[in-house]
Simulated scan of single mutants.
Amino acid sequence: MTNDLIETEKNVALLTSKLQALKKEIKKVIVGQDEIIDQLLITFLAGGHGLLEGVPGLAKTLMIRTLSEAIDLHFRRIQFTPDLMPSDIIGTEVLEEDHATGKRFFKFNKGPIFANIILADEINRTSPKTQAALLEAMQEFEVTYAGVTYPLDKPFFILATQNPIEQAGTFPLPEAQLDRFLLYIKVSYPTLEEELNILSQTTGSKKGSVEKVITAQEIIMLQKFVREIHISQELIEAVGKLVRATRPNETQDAYVKEWVRWGAGPRAGQAMILTAKARAILQGRLAVSPEDIKHVAYPVLRHRILMNFKAEAENVSSDSVCKYLLQNSQIKLT
């Protein structure tokens, strides 16, 4: 084993221990939801954005806020409402006067998008025009206003929430914007044991105190390490086949042709490999396993497979297609 590899393993071990400490801090406040916390951390490690969907009261907002409290990063929450304007997110120019010369000039006042962690709460409650204000920030990590481009500080994450049941007065995210989210995370109800613990821990006078355990620089280092994680050519080919198999015009599979209107694009394959690498490093490994691919396939693909009207009527979801394809013997993930 070379000295460089030994040094890399030491650095990975040190930073991985920070991730475990981060999870421990989050667990001081959040009961259960281990899978959701892991997926949030995978989103961070892969340098992407996450969309959380769940009914009210499942601690989506609290989970994101707690995560931000345990990381030494600037956090801002934006409450999305029908009257929210793009300038409320990006910022706006104001007219100021130089008292020394008397000259007036426009100064750009930065909006809440200029933070490291953005909580876009109930993102589907605002108009498409305001939703679109996030597109450049999500993809290019910069914002343009009045012809001037302003870079965003890194690391930069947008974590958005939405409610799946109350759809009156909402504006569904367009597919192009959904595709910008690295993972689509579904938050489910807690187990009976977890719910009893929630009732016990949240109705008393004691409150968990969260400490900052990881810095912005360490997050950036981890993101660099993620891209160095090894993945075999066989797994890359399996990911390529899996993504292409979701496209009804490129597959002969009758199941996909029956239920799917549009399949996932190349960004899905990129997301699957990056998040699989992130999961590997989260578990302290330096190589991607087939289980990593299977683990991230659902949150990567569920918002990138567009089902047809027949599927919606028959309650066949994109998760059903993903499950079918993962069980397809033609795609080797063993």
Rank of each mutant, 00 (worst) to 15 (best):
R125C: 06
T202S: 14
M85W: 12
M272S: 03
L235C: 11
A297N: 02
P82Y: 09
E136A: 10
V12Y: 06
A276P: 11
T170N: 01
A278Y: 05
P248G: 13
A176W: 04
G208I: 02
P299S: 07
D38H: 03
K24G: 00
I273D: 01
G147C: 04
I123L: 15
K110R: 14
R285G: 02
A268K: 01
E93N: 13
L192D: 12
N249A: 14
N109G: 09
Q79R: 10
A21F: 08
A287C: 08
L58A: 05
F44G: 01
L15T: 14
E25D: 12
D253V: 04
F141G: 12
I214S: 00
A137N: 11
K310Y: 07
L286F: 13
V29D: 05
I37M: 07
W262R: 11
V300F: 00
E136S: 02
F157W: 05
E211C: 07
E258D: 13
E7R: 15
L135T: 03
R302T: 01
T149L: 12
N116K: 08
E175S: 00
Q39D: 09
K206Q: 14
V187E: 01
V210G: 06
E228I: 05
K206C: 06
G263I: 00
H303S: 01
M63I: 08
A160V: 06
H295G: 06
A100C: 04
K129T: 12
P164K: 10
K24E: 15
S320C: 05
L95A: 09
E314V: 07
L222N: 00
V226I: 10
A137H: 08
R227V: 02
G111T: 07
S209N: 11
V316T: 08
K186V: 09
Q33N: 10
A120P: 05
V296M: 14
F225W: 13
I158P: 04
V300L: 00
K18L: 14
I229L: 07
I231Q: 10
W262L: 15
G48S: 07
T246M: 11
Q283L: 11
N197D: 15
I198S: 08
I219Q: 00
K323I: 13
A176F: 03
S17T: 15
